[in-house]
């Protein structure tokens, strides 16, 4: 009897300690979000190969569904495409002329643009559809030159960016995740904005510059290149509801056997701050005050 009571007491203490440890870990994760990066990479390496083999039946089902859909909608799509094609041909000729003019102007102004560089092409192997974090895993990692913080682009547009990487697998934060922020430009109006995930099928457009110009349903959004991760001009989505905050349907969907390309960061930040050379002249305030703050300037008289 005594022994059972003691065991129950020890059990309760251990349970309490375990839950307290968990809460402590959450607080540590708040202060240091990248703490377990190495362990996360190892877990990715363990799980991804299994799914890349086990996903064959899933792929088969997905392909069957998409074939069925193709056959059912073929006639209607054909008519739509024929009308679209006529408009697109005219647009294409104008675009070709514009492109030539733009290239000439850029040559004239000596505009230097960083080149986009594809690091690798991989397929989406698995996903966390049972979690609050919307991410997918691709079967390529540090061994292929893929680290965290790189843009991931699908055939139809932007998919997301890598956040963790193991040796043979990497995790992609999808556009729909609440932590995803994509700097975009509205093509029609030229407004800069952020596309934010909401854990729902549609995204939100926030922090739009020049919000007095109204948006229309059907406005296209492309990446602006701000922030230096995503190259400019990649389709992100289409406005489906211009009411504030505007709802955006993503251009590319990672559903199905999607192949994605991982590119190098467009304009990577320099890893280290530039060092000041030793011979740099020191400002006179710093020398006189022993490194203290400079004396306040007398206020200019008001006119």
């Amino acid at each position: 009897m005594r022994r059972e009571q003691n065991l129950a007491l020890v059990g309760a203490v251990v349970s309490g300690a375990v839950i307290a440890t968990g809460l402590l870990l959450v607080l540590v994760a708040r202060v240091n979000p990248d703490g377990a990066a190495r362990m996360r990479g190892v877990m990715l390496d363990l799980v991804t190969p299994v799914w890349s083999v086990a996903r064959a039946p899933f792929d088969g089902v997905g392909r069957a569904v998409s074939w069925g859909g193709d056959y059912l909608g073929a006639v209607g799509r054909n008519r739509e495409l024929t009308t679209e094609l006529a408009a697109a041909r005219a647009e294409l000729q104008r675009a070709a002329a514009d492109r030539a003019a733009l290239a000439a102007l850029k040559r004239l102004q000596r505009v230097r643009e960083p080149a986009r560089r594809v690091i690798g092409t991989a397929r989406i192997v698995s996903a966390t559809s049972g979690s609050v974090v919307r991410s997918a895993m691709i079967a390529a990692g540090r061994g292929d030159g893929i680290g965290p913080g790189l843009p991931v682009i699908g055939a139809d547009g932007l998919i997301g960016r890598t956040v963790e990487a193991g040796n043979h697998a990497a995790r992609v934060l999808l556009l729909t995740d609440p932590a995803s922020r994509i700097p975009v430009t509205v093509v029609r109006t030229g407004q800069a904005a952020l596309v934010v995930g909401t854990n729902r099928p549609s995204l939100e457009l926030r922090d739009r510059g020049g919000a007095d110009v109204p948006l229309q349903a059907g406005d296209r959004l492309v990446t602006s290149g701000d922030g230096g991760v995503f190259p400019p001009g990649i389709p992100v989505g289409i406005i489906i509801n211009p009411a504030e905050p505007p709802a955006v349907r993503p251009a590319a969907s990672p559903v199905g056997a999607a192949y994605v390309t991982v590119e190098a960061a467009y304009l990577p930040l320099p890893a280290l701050a530039p060092e000041t050379p030793l011979g740099t002249p020191v400002p006179i305030e710093a020398r006189r005050g022993g490194g203290g703050t400079p004396a306040p300037q007398p206020a200019a008289p008001l006119p």
């Binding site: 251990v14 349970s15 375990v18 839950i19 809460l23 979000p33 966390t128 979690s131």
Partner: peptide, 28 residues
């Protein structure tokens, strides 16, 4: 027991890309 659930939760946190400790706390 809660401590086994805690360890399973740690694995879940690492696999689901959640901050370490969330599933661990809640499973325990």
């Amino acid at each position: 027991t809660p401590w086994i659930a805690f360890l399973i939760g740690l694995v879940a946190d690492l696999l689901f890309a959640q901050p370490l400790g969330i599933n661990a706390t809640l499973f325990a």
